[in-house]
Simulated scan of single mutants.
Amino acid sequence: MSTELPYFSPARPRVFAHRGLAVSAPENTLLAFQHALELGVDHIEIDVHASSDGHAIVAHDDDLRRVGGIDARVDALTARDLARLDLGAGQHVPTLAETLDAFPDARFNIDLKSAAAIAPTVAAIRAARAEQRVLLTSFSEQRRRAALRLLPEVATSASGPRFAAALLATVVRAGPVVRQALRGLHAVQIPERALGISTVTPARIAAFHAAGVEVHVWTVNEPADMARLLDRGIDGIVTDRADLALSVVADRA
């Protein structure tokens, strides 16, 4: 069960700061992570690519047009090149290694964006001895499985195909099939709708819980929606507004 892993040791409901708190700092930067953690967030959601010289790089997009204003792919630049890029507020594109080192008590939810990112991500986690404070996931089941073969002790959430199988099984109320689809996983991290289906009805949340996984919903930025989903029994909110989410959780407590 997920509750047996140190990654899930803070009390629920969980607030996942989506790419940190990027209200006054660029997303996926050390400053954005610092801002979220200073508020009291326990979990930071990040995305990881690979640099041209084989480092795990914290970045969502595969190129730098949106966040850096340059027409270049992350995997075409070295980690040193990326460290020199000014994203604003004195921030650069960080490596996973420096991120884990900078925040040794934070828990990180890591989305593997490419196959090339798997090996350097595993190496950075091993070097930082961070196995107990990371969750590895990917939309790709192939990437997720490859990473878990190298780090079988870490927490993990459902890939796109694994969740789709579980979701479709709930349509016909096939509890054993839901449990089989989610076997070996610790969470589903999902939008409110997928495949044209509402994913977080009370019955579906109950089915996922019966399969032994937590339910985390992304990306929820409105306090009213956060409260509504928490009322239904979800376990975590993935949000760009961790500040608002913490207030909602505190008010309900």
Score class of each variant (00 low, 15 high):
residue 83 A to H: 12
residue 143 R to M: 02
residue 34 Q to V: 12
residue 185 L to M: 13
residue 21 L to Q: 05
residue 129 R to D: 12
residue 96 L to S: 02
residue 156 T to A: 14
residue 194 A to G: 10
residue 114 S to H: 09
residue 109 N to F: 11
residue 131 E to A: 14
residue 17 A to K: 01
residue 137 T to Y: 01
residue 210 A to F: 01
residue 63 D to H: 06
residue 163 F to D: 09
residue 60 H to N: 07
residue 89 A to Y: 06
residue 67 V to F: 08
residue 154 V to H: 08
residue 37 L to E: 08
residue 81 D to M: 14
residue 59 A to E: 06
residue 243 D to P: 08
residue 189 Q to K: 02
residue 246 L to S: 05
residue 40 G to D: 05
residue 209 H to S: 05
residue 213 V to H: 06
residue 67 V to W: 03
residue 230 L to W: 06
residue 247 S to R: 09
residue 99 T to K: 00
residue 1 M to H: 04
residue 173 R to T: 15
residue 160 G to V: 05
residue 9 S to N: 13
residue 63 D to F: 02
residue 4 E to R: 01
residue 63 D to Y: 03
residue 115 A to V: 10
residue 223 P to D: 13
residue 71 D to T: 11
residue 68 G to V: 11
residue 143 R to G: 07
residue 29 T to Y: 00
residue 42 D to W: 03
residue 82 L to E: 08
residue 50 A to W: 00
residue 189 Q to R: 00
residue 86 D to S: 04
residue 10 P to S: 05
residue 176 P to R: 07
residue 81 D to H: 10
residue 40 G to I: 02
residue 183 R to C: 14
residue 21 L to E: 07
residue 151 L to W: 04
residue 55 H to A: 14
residue 89 A to C: 15
residue 162 R to D: 10
residue 16 F to Q: 05
residue 163 F to S: 04
residue 224 A to F: 10
residue 12 R to E: 08
residue 247 S to I: 08
residue 154 V to K: 04
residue 27 E to L: 06
residue 142 Q to K: 15
residue 97 A to M: 02
residue 199 T to A: 00
residue 31 L to Q: 14
residue 3 T to F: 11
residue 9 S to G: 06
residue 60 H to E: 11
residue 46 I to H: 00
residue 109 N to E: 05
residue 162 R to W: 01
residue 106 A to I: 13
residue 29 T to F: 01
residue 210 A to M: 10
residue 28 N to F: 01
residue 31 L to A: 11
residue 68 G to W: 02
residue 12 R to T: 09
residue 163 F to Q: 02
residue 53 D to T: 02
residue 34 Q to L: 02
residue 171 V to F: 08
residue 182 L to A: 11
residue 40 G to Q: 06
residue 174 A to G: 02
residue 192 E to N: 12
residue 154 V to P: 00
residue 191 P to A: 14
residue 213 V to N: 12
residue 199 T to L: 06
residue 242 A to L: 05
residue 205 I to D: 09
residue 89 A to P: 06
residue 15 V to W: 03
residue 192 E to D: 13
residue 199 T to D: 04
residue 50 A to M: 00
residue 37 L to H: 05
residue 202 P to T: 03
residue 203 A to G: 11
residue 99 T to P: 09
residue 178 V to I: 06
residue 29 T to E: 15
residue 220 V to G: 14
residue 224 A to C: 06
residue 8 F to W: 15
residue 123 A to M: 09
residue 95 T to E: 13
residue 76 A to R: 13
residue 175 G to T: 07
residue 248 V to H: 05
residue 70 I to N: 10
residue 139 F to W: 12
residue 4 E to M: 00
residue 154 V to F: 05
residue 116 A to D: 06
residue 242 A to T: 14
residue 127 A to M: 11
residue 39 L to C: 11
residue 109 N to A: 02
residue 189 Q to P: 00
residue 206 A to M: 00
residue 225 D to R: 11
residue 218 W to F: 11
residue 7 Y to K: 07
